[in-house]
Design a protein around this nucleic acid. Structure first.
Lengths: 356, 356
DNA sequence: ACGCGTCCCGTAAACGTTTACGATCCTATG
DNA sequence: CATAGGATCGTAAACGTTTACGGGACGCGT
């Protein structure tokens, strides 16, 4: 056999078949691991495919079997959510891929433009049938996207819970737990007047975080004071602003809970401008652990989680909802509250004196 | 005609055709704006498609015309590059989409997993024929991906220049210019001993940045001292480390150029620990303008650019290389060095005394 | 009456796969 | 020997589009 055609055109499975002098059907079966094919011919086919660099045309395959083998992760680019910063999504993506790739499922990210309605964007993507299933993020408290996906019968999982009527699968960080642990810890250190910062309560995260905080206070018999809830952006400036507003209060808090560790930089600065030293005069606890949290002085007490593993969890929830994979990923519950672990620093390690 | 079937199955263009009692070919032509169709029937078809929610199946269309109408933006998730932080990619993506969407081209992001070779990943994506064209980022100084794409004849543009033999299209931030302007400005303020921080010179950015710096010094008749080039990570810790290394030098620099504004936070802290005050005892200039740059004290002198517009530029370069769009985006040159603008702060605003 | 051009539309063939079905060969069993 | 049945393979029909091609209807000029 002549050794020509190393990198020739390779039009498709048909050429591969006649190069091997085998029927096109057998080649397809060989490539896809179907049973009705001699092991030796399968070897030959795979070898030839490798050598000629043949890869099945995705369009043809999709058209025939109605499936694309692509999973979409829809993201927005609003700056309001804490998740946007850093490489939150890329880390989660890593976890997602680590399980999806095992099933030859490719992950793509679908970035919804600023100026387009996420609902309309999603509708287009769904209609185009470019993905088999979806992961949607930055869910709002009421989010039409759930109904759309349910009606279109396309499997999905949400990164972030919602209050939608239909029970849909989701995984979400345990912001409730974070707020609880933070309050518990601060109360144990003697604090009674604890402030919190959070994004707008329209964003689900903002709602849940403050709810957890409120209930934790209640549990400790501390009155909930709306003045201690500061809505701010999740940035250094946001932190600065939080400190600024807190300093204006008549009864100043002795502790503050932040939603994003970058805010601590601004908060530290602002309170120090006022002669107040974090970790001595005011306690600070923050979601979410990042290298810079330990870099601050005093080191920030914060909450850690593995976003990679959260991605794994999301992928498993998603696959459990796809008929082709559901027996491989059986599940009792398809809603996960993802735990976080408190990493003690020195920003809240002092004990408050008895006197209020 | 019965008003049923508002949200019925809608199998495809065939159903739409027989619902309208028109041939399938005409429907297709009507939808795609082809000439050979009566304007009135076109109206009818469009109305019916809208009402029934019909959208062409992408697989079928792709199969037939060999094009997917999807553009891919390949990204990695290495933390070594400055571009990874913040929402660099999301901002560029916005610019890309603003022009691509006008041509009904959808943009998807292709995240290459940590543990996969970018070259192999790209090969898979190309072979799958999931995108018509590609934007690749985080290019290395020698990058096999260019040859792969050239051989596969798939249009692409690189975000970041390279030294590949084949002349490929790219757009890149003007790091050379940044280094030049920074040096010029610092020299004008009386500095002669100027340090610089950059990522590894394997990354193209690291190479170019330092090269620009070296040539600028030369131009001013200042000797290039390798001890003043600090390779560090683009993070707070990196900035801290840079300061740390600089403080160890016998002849300490009076100014430092950073590659990433977040590094300034760490650098500020470290030098202040040593009793050195930024903006008074040492000048700091940094790429790249971000909200936090103005938030620092003293406010950081840095370089600004519109990443959105960079995305627009990238998209136009890309389209100019695609036969179907090239007449709409004629171009003389398909390589762009994207300018940045210096935003003066107070971190380098002092004049150095004559004595060295 | 005839030819010709224009406008619109229907027909059918492709695009590259997968897969149901049937055909062939071979072996084992009665 | 006859038959059953498993192993392996070839054939052809789908999947939903787009588009080249041809044809009918009509108007207009000769």
């Amino acid at each position: 056999m002549p050794q020509e055609g190393k990198t020739q055109s390779m039009k498709g499975i048909r050429q591969l078949a006649e190069h091997l002098d085998i029927s096109i059907g057998t080649v397809s079966r060989a490539l896809n691991g179907k049973p009705d094919v001699n092991e030796e011919t399968r070897k030959r086919v795979l070898a030839a495919a490798e050598q000629l660099g043949y890869v099945a045309n995705q369009s043809g395959r999709s058209l025939r079997q109605g499936t694309t083998n692509v999973i979409g992760l829809m993201i927005q680019s609003s700056r309001e959510t804490v998740e946007n910063s850093d490489n939150f999504f890329l880390t989660v993506t890593g976890g997602l891929q680590s399980v999806l790739l095992r099933h030859k499922l490719d992950l793509i990210m679908l970035p919804c433009p600023h100026d387009e309605d996420p609902y309309e964007y999603l509708k287009r993507m769904v209609a185009r049938r470019i993905v088999d299933a979806l992961i949607i993020s930055e869910t709002h408290r009421v989010d039409k996207r759930f109904d759309l996906l349910a009606k279109a019968k396309i499997p999905f999982v949400a990164l972030g819970r919602s209050l939608s009527g239909t029970q849909h699968p989701w995984a979400d960080l345990d912001f409730d737990g974070v707020a609880n642990s933070a309050v518990d810890r601060l109360v144990a250190h003697g604090h009674r007047r604890i402030a919190i910062s959070a994004p707008s309560s329209d964003i689900n995260l903002g709602f849940i975080f403050v709810e957890g905080y409120r209930r934790a206070l209640e549990r400790h018999g501390i009155a909930y004071d709306p003045a201690l809830v500061i809505r701010a952006k999740s940035s250094e400036q946001g932190g600065y602003q939080v400190a600024d507003e807190l300093l204006r209060l008549k009864e100043k808090p002795t502790a503050v809970i932040l939603i994003y560790e970058l805010m601590a930089i601004g908060l530290y600065r602002r309170v120090m401008e006022a002669g107040i030293i974090p970790g001595r005069d005011i306690a600070v606890v923050s979601f979410r652990e990042a290298p810079r949290a330990k870099f601050l002085q005093p080191a920030l007490t914060c909450f850690r989680t593995s976003l990679h593993d959260l991605g794994v969890e999301l992928a498993e929830i998603l696959l459990s909802g796809m008929p082709a994979y559901s027996q491989e990923y059986p599940r009792k519950t398809r809603q996960t509250i993802w735990p976080l672990e408190l990493i003690p620093g020195e920003s809240d390690s002092f004990q408050l004196m008895a006197a209020e």
